[in-house]
Design a binder for these strands. Structure first.
Length: 499
RNA sequence: GCCCCCAUCGUCUAGUGGACUAGGACGCAGCCCUUUCAAGGCUACGACCGGGGUUCGAAUCCCCGUGGGGGCACCA
């Protein structure tokens, strides 16, 4: 690879998904940019699971995330599966660390125990809403408790959470790399919960602590975090730590541009053969090169030469050229890039990737034939599974054309049958069925007969391939072989005569 | 309702005060190539949200609108 840019300090980046659902486009783009930045600077890309919400935990999602990253070719340098010197990389395995850090904040006077019950909070919120208050936030009841009293109650085992003591006055200036300074009046910020009553941290504490402990230099995350950005900056400052470079990535909008892409829309996308989930995209026949290129261009401004491999992206990537505005996803563009990257693959490579689709369909695949077929269909594939529609007939013993399709345009059944017979006559008289041998006599037949190439070759195509649309006819026949071609042609003549 | 972010072709974007007759890509339309379908090549259509400033000069800077998006949990 050797794209490390040593003018830049090695960056440590991370993707921190929660194993509560499936790995989607947003996650993938985040991971891609993380990876590019880390590689570009000779740093590390880390995978960490923020699995503190036990209620929403989905078994198997951790594995899916790791598998998808692998598939995309952006395997993390450190993760729960690969290890690393800053682990553990699962938040549920870091309880003590959060506990200690919450205590540090309490000791410093930046946080306090809150003993309010969920019921009281619920009631409080209802009342605030009833009063039509602009801000619905914690009323600060436990803020007033004497620290010694609070410590005693905690020691007695009283159920509590730890809240951040947000400054009530002044403004917080948070710096986003793409948007510049973002000023927020502190009165709009709540005393957020840092540590829950079950001892596990919320995102606000967990992510800040882990990013610091894991020496993350650049935090690339979704713009959905912007509203709590001031909080995060306040937490980091309360600890007295240096801030990472914050980069809030644009959110993905649904194709219509109306609203954020969500699970609901994924069902609709699936109906059209698309998905927002990477693992689905893989099984739908999309290749990582295409997917990567596609997502890279949403939220990253590349003026020209947009068709890029991962290595080419690496050469050009910079967080300075990322864009802050929301981006509507466009599946047609995914198709474009997927097809374009398929065309870029070496024949052997592509053959290896489409083979499983044939065998999966129960077809017996001969490798030498596959290698000859692949170049014929390469520029016709949008997704890998398209190979089935284009080339299954090569591996079948016989094809079953729709009799109607055997009738050439502008001709009737009888005429079509005559043509088929004549073509059979010509082919069977030839010693060989290679492209060079077959084409001249057929061409001269077309010319002398006054028919169009379209009509003659159309009949032959349907007869031999069983379909109206196929890879180039002569090359296809050569691969299928003389015997099978004649056999299929004969079958076609019989079909025509039966109409 | 309140807070925050964003604003160039239908979509993704280039553009950082004059080189803009606003560039590229996807899609769309047409043509060429052609045994089908593709691929490829060429051409067309297509945008600076509005109003005020600043300036000799604004897509580019500032303000106000408007529109879009996000967020208001012991979820992330």
């Amino acid at each position: 690879m050797g794209v490390e840019d040593f003018r830049l300090k090695p960056a440590r980046t991370r993707i921190a998904p929660s194993p509560t659902g499936r790995f989607h486009l947003g996650n993938a783009r985040n991971a891609l940019f993380d990876y590019l930045l880390a590689r570009k600077t000779g740093g590390q890309f880390i995978l960490r699971f923020e699995d503190t919400d036990r209620n929403r935990y989905v078994p198997g999602s951790e594995e899916e995330i790791a598998r998808v990253l692998d598939w995309m070719g952006i395997t993390p340098d450190e993760s729960p599966f690969h290890g690393g010197q800053y682990g553990p990389y699962r938040q549920t395995e870091r309880r003590d660390i959060y506990h200690q850090h919450a205590q540090i904040l309490v000791d410093k006077g930046h946080a306090y125990p809150c003993f309010c019950s969920p019921e009281r909070l619920e009631k409080m919120r209802k009342e605030q809403e009833a009063q039509k208050l602009d801000r619905v936030q914690y009323d600060g009841l436990c803020r007033k408790i004497d620290p010694d009293d609070a410590a005693r109650r905690v020691a007695n085992g009283e159920s509590h959470v730890i809240r951040f003591k947000m400054p009530k006055e002044g403004t917080t200036t948070a710096h986003d790399h793409l948007r510049g300074d973002i000023l927020t009046e502190n009165k709009y910020m709540d005393d957020y919960v840092l540590l829950r009553s079950n001892g596990l941290p919320t995102y606000h504490l967990g992510a800040m602590v882990d990013d610091h402990e894991m020496k993350i230099t650049h935090v690339l995350r979704s713009a959905e975090w912007l509203p709590t950005f001031p909080l995060h900056v306040q937490i980091v400052r309360a600890f007295g730590w240096d801030e990472p470079v914050w980069v809030h990535l644009s959110v993905f909008l649904k194709p219509s541009g109306k609203g954020k892409m969500s699970k609901r829309d994924s069902a609709a996308a699936m109906k059209d053969g698309y998905s927002i989930f990477l693992d689905d995209l893989r099984s739908l026949g999309y290749i990582p090169e295409g997917v990567l290129n596609w997502i890279a261009l949403m939220g990253w401004g590349v003026a020209e030469d947009e068709l890029m491999t991962l290595d080419q992206m690496l050469e050009r990537f910079s967080i300075d050229t990322l864009t802050p505005s929301p981006a509507a996803i466009n599946f047609q563009k995914l198709d474009h890039f997927n097809g374009a990257h398929i065309r870029l693959l070496a024949i052997e490579d592509l053959a290896g990737r489409i083979k499983p689709y044939f065998t999966g369909a129960g077809l017996e695949v001969q490798n030498d034939a596959l290698l000859k077929i692949t170049p014929l269909i390469r520029e016709r594939l949008v997704t890998l599974d398209d190979c089935l529609a284009f080339a299954s007939f090569f591996f079948k013993d016989e094809v079953k054309p729709n009799p109607e399709d055997l009738i050439a345009q502008g001709l009737d059944v009888r005429q079509s049958a005559e043509i088929a017979k004549k073509v059979y006559e010509i082919l069977s008289s030839l010693p060989d069925i290679s492209h060079q041998i077959v084409e001249p006599p057929l061409r001269s037949y077309v010319e002398s007969s006054g028919l169009s190439a379209n009509q003659v070759f159309g009949i032959l195509r349907v007869a031999v391939t069983g379909q109206k649309v196929s890879p180039p006819l002569f090359e296809s026949m050569e691969i299928i072989g003389r015997e099978k071609v004649l056999q299929r042609l004969k079958m076609a003549i019989e079909l025509l005569e039966k109409i």
